[in-house]
Design a protein around this nucleic acid. Structure first.
Length: 735
RNA sequence: GCGCGGGUGGCGGAAUUGGCAGACGCGCUAGGCUCAGAACCUAGUGGUAGCAAUACUAUGCGGGUUCAACUCCCGCCUCGCGCACCA
């Protein structure tokens, strides 16, 4: 749309191009299972999913204050608003009241939170981010009656233990009681002016450190239901409307934000918690005057019957009291909101709902699917879905009564498509259902998922939600879709993430033309640990290219080499090389199996190549030994450099593909050392090293060490106090 | 403010989880090859002092535990990311 090209043409063209690119890298995908979420054979099932959710009351339409992007002319999910701006175009997001479709992810909030515990092989970071996003907190909602009126102000608090310290109440300007409260106020005009001012403050301003708390007194008072104290009611700009009730009880002594506000407007500060080990008399006043509130747990004071209790117990007892006297109730709050899936974009799967004069909102039947996205000429955003203007699309018979009805014109957020695609991979060609449950249950959950952290909340939370829903529907039998998660870093160049807008992209096609796909693959994996960001350096690529040439030259050397005598005992030099070969096999295997440690695996293969060259410098290597070495080198390289390894495999006379050959095996006989070198240190500082035989006793090793010239010198006259021997590693002499 | 990660040579990064810090690569220096250059080969390369053997010093800073600390503990500094007046 941005480029004024039809989204379908653009998308299909890019899919084609990227498929070519992925193939040119030599990546081993099963292309038979490719799915395209924007084509009807896929999105029919996305619509089917929507209908299942609808039938369970988990897809619903409501009027709500939603995020609106003026530039994209569409609503956005909370998850797609970053720093108060549209994640796509960075336009300041506005709040608008609209009737929109939501998916009830909040019904699953507790399970999404609880089941994070099942995800043992997910990064802590991602789990922490989801936990944060769900934002569960337990507390009470308590009624503060307004003096001289029938109004009750409900306030949610997690700090039930501090209710006796509430010295004022603050309301968001949108709170439904505001109108009534200020009706007879003397300064009604001023209050209205204040509200107008606060309304205009952009929501992103709250994020700034410079955001100043402001408020105005309504002239009304509320009664603290626990102690009957009369406390003033204010309207304040720091109270959120979307969380809790939009009204808060303020305890300045134990909340920094409330204290800041109280000090500014000269409101009372009342301490009701003292730190476990503190002396109340001496500390209280200083704290408040220095502007810091005691926010920790402690012992209750100034709290009537609850004095002397510890915070934790007090919370429970006060909550009991509140419920018993019917002045409030226990309540759990979440930050997680329902998932807004309506989009006013053309490019998406139409929501399969129609509106009928007599039946109202009606869901389509499965046999009506797919609702095809019609051809349009006009797809630029206008604020209404472009589908609105297409008569053939809009006009439809009501599936219930057959009368003329009109279609829903919103399309679905594309994250709905991607929340279940891993299931479709199991049954990509299935015509009659989205997937075959028995096959899905056999193959899934996904063993290893790889992706960027940018999906930590959006895609990975939505997929978990949908998977749990499908589990409840009996269509899958596992609670979590992705068993292991690996989040890879970004490639950075000149200090910025590679991107077209920064103009620092290194085109893979160009690299492949110049150096070949293998060199590029090897370089990318050698750059550093894949979970971290890595800096692209052309020199590094050159280094890898050099290494590949060096390794390939060994094949030339081998081919020019006489067949030579065989059957002789290997020379010392050859034994050294054989040991290195098997050590390399062992370590490369461990690096690959133990995690994604490609960078170290590659460096070990480099070491092996280096040792071959060093060996040839020092003496003669027989052809059979050299051949074994070259063979192992390219077998170990095969996962990284499949094309070149394949070629070498053929040159060495092997029939068939190298990818079908066995992974090299470690021959333990080369790793069993008869002799080895250990370090000898004095007081932890290495002074010398020596060769020992594995069958030596500790006494023998000590004697030998103490006879070393450098050790004698280091010890000079002092007598060893203690000698510590770490098997096969070092001997430390303490003096 | 809360939550995750990091901090090791000129640079990217290793260190078998408490046991020889700096593997491997880049860069740099010297030498070889060459008419010359590129490429390639050989050697060297944390810092300070020394011709050298060697000595001292060194993993963000300060303490601690230990025969031994990049690694563990306590207290700081700093950078990156995520969330954020969530009551």
């Amino acid at each position: 749309i941005k480029h004024k090209i039809h989204p379908r043409d653009w998308t299909l063209k890019n899919i084609k191009r990227m498929t070519q690119q992925l193939k040119s890298w030599g990546l081993g995908y099963d292309w038979e299972r490719e799915v395209t979420t924007c084509l009807p054979d896929y999105y029919a099932w996305t619509q089917w999913l929507f209908l299942r959710l609808y039938s369970k009351g988990l897809a619903y339409r409501k009027e709500a204050v939603v995020n609106w992007c003026d530039s994209c002319k569409t609503v956005l999910a909370n998850e797609q608003v970053v720093d108060g701006k549209c994640e796509r175009c960075s336009t300041e997001v506005k709040q608008k009241k609209l009737k929109q479709w939501f998916l009830k992810i909040t019904d699953y909030a507790d399970r999404l939170l609880e089941d994070l515990n099942l995800l043992e092989e997910w990064p802590q970071r991602v789990k922490a981010m989801q936990e944060n996003w769900i934002g569960k907190s337990c507390g009470v909602e308590i009624n503060f009656p307004v003096k001289g009126s029938g109004v009750n102000l409900n306030c949610f608090t997690t700090r039930v233990d501090t209710i006796f310290g509430a010295t004022f109440i603050a309301l968001n300007w949108e709170h439904p009681a505001v109108k009534e409260l200020i009706n007879e106020a003397e300064n009604k005009k001023d209050i209205e002016l204040f509200i107008e001012k606060v309304k205009k403050q952009p929501s992103s301003a709250r994020l700034l450190d410079s955001f100043e708390k402001e408020g105005i007194f309504t002239g009304k008072f509320a009664l603290n239901p626990l102690n009957g104290e009369k406390i003033p009611i204010w309207i304040a700009n720091y109270v959120l409307s979307g969380y809790g009730t939009g009204a808060i009880m303020c305890v300045p002594a134990h909340d920094g934000r409330d204290l800041e506000f109280a000090l500014k407007y000269g409101l009372a500060v009342k301490k009701v918690i003292k730190a476990q080990d503190s002396d109340f008399e001496t500390e209280s006043e200083d704290e408040v005057s220095s502007g810091s509130a005691y926010e920790g747990q402690g012992i209750l004071i100034n709290s009537g019957d609850f004095n002397g209790l510890a915070s934790e117990e007090a919370k429970a007892r006060i909550a009991d009291y509140i419920e018993k006297n019917k002045i409030g109730r226990r309540l759990t709050q979440y930050k997680l909101r329902d998932w807004l899936v309506s989009r006013q974009r053309y490019w998406g799967a139409p929501i399969p709902i129609v509106y009928c004069e007599s039946c109202g909102e009606v869901a389509l039947r499965d046999e009506d699917l797919p609702v095809l996205l019609p051809e349009v000429k006009e797809f630029l955003p206008t604020g209404k879905s472009p589908l609105t203007y297409i008569k053939d699309f809009m006009e439809v018979k009501c599936p219930k009564c057959g009368a003329q009805a009109r279609r829903e014109t919103d399309t679905m957020d594309t994250f709905v498509d991607s929340s279940w695609y891993y299931l479709r991979y199991i049954s990509p060609k299935e015509q009659n259902k989205p997937f075959v449950s028995s096959d899905v249950n056999n193959w899934l959950p996904v063993d290893q998922y790889v992706g960027g952290v940018e999906h930590a909340i959006l895609h990975l939370m939505y997929s978990r939600f949908i998977n749990k829903f499908l589990q409840d529907e009996g269509l899958v039998n596992f609670p979590e879709p992705f068993k292991k998660l690996f989040t890879q870093g970004m490639i950075v160049k000149d200090g910025f993430k590679m991107s077209k807008s920064k103009g620092n992209v290194v085109a893979p096609d160009y690299i492949i033309d110049k150096y070949g796909a293998d060199t590029m693959r090897l370089y990318i994996l050698f750059m550093g640990p894949p979970q971290k960001d890595a800096e692209w350096q052309d020199e590094g690529l050159q280094g890898i290219w050099r290494f590949m040439q060096r390794a390939l030259r060994l094949v030339d050397i081998l081919e020019d080499c006489d067949s030579g005598k065989s059957g002789n005992e290997p020379s010392v030099l050859e034994i050294g090389l054989l040991k290195k070969i098997h050590l390399t096999i062992k370590e490369v295997t461990r690096d690959l199996e133990g995690g994604f440690q490609f960078n170290t695996a590659i460096s070990r293969i480099m070491e092996l190549v280096n040792q071959v060259y060093r060996g040839m410098n020092e003496g003669v290597l027989r052809r059979e030994i050299l051949e074994e070495t070259v063979d192992v080198i390219f077998l170990l390289l095969a996962p990284f450099t499949p094309h070149i390894s394949e070629e070498v495999n053929a040159r060495l006379g092997h029939k068939g593909s190298i990818l079908l050959r066995d992974w090299p095996r470690v021959d333990q006989k080369y790793l069993l050392e008869k002799e080895l070198e250990i370090a000898v240190s004095v007081n932890g500082k290495v002074k010398d090293r020596m060769v020992i035989s594995v069958d030596w006793t500790k006494d023998l090793i000590e004697d030998k060490a103490l006879s070393l010239g450098k050790i004698k010198k280091a010890l000079s006259a002092s007598k060893p106090k203690k000698i510590i021997y770490i098997d096969k590693k070092l001997l430390n002499i303490v003096v």
